[in-house]
Amino acid sequence: MKPRHKKMAVIALSVSALTVAVILVLNVFQSNLVFFFSPSQVIAKEAPIGKSFRIGGLVEEGSLKREGDGTTMRFAITDTAEAIQIVYTGILPDLFKEGKGVVAQGKIAENGIFYADEVLAKHDENYMPPEAASALEQAAKAQKTSLTQ
């Protein structure tokens, strides 16, 4: 390759790298800054209707039920104020658990049920050994009972 051609190639490369960067930025600002909507936002009709979007929140305690076929699951995503019923067929991530964070992508039907085609786990920023976690849980329970007594 002649130096001149090499230079042209490198300029083309830098221009395309910058273009890709700008397109990514614009794309993010347009749609993905809101990566997911909370159940309250969905109830308030802030989420797009008839289009695929994501709902994020916690898997409601005691809401997870498996259908007869074994792979279809029903559960509710809650932000503690509102909850949305989710139906999902497929594999759940390892961290999927009742009471833990979750983000589901799909469409909401007329009847208010959200049919998800992808379910991702959203974990929190805490890292500790299991013993510490169960100790914290015990402490929280003890506090709860002392408050209710």
């Binding site: 910058l18 794309n27 800054l33 594999i91 961290l95 992808e118 959203k122």
Partner: peptide, 26 residues
């Protein structure tokens, strides 16, 4: 992949880090 269930999502954190990579390359 093992924790969230996906290799990649276009959320603001991941996308802005990818943009950082393009800035270095640029």
């Amino acid at each position: 992949k093992p924790m969230w269930g996906t290799w990649w999502v276009w959320d603001a954190r991941l996308t802005s880090e990818l943009i950082l990579f393009f800035l270095y390359i640029g």
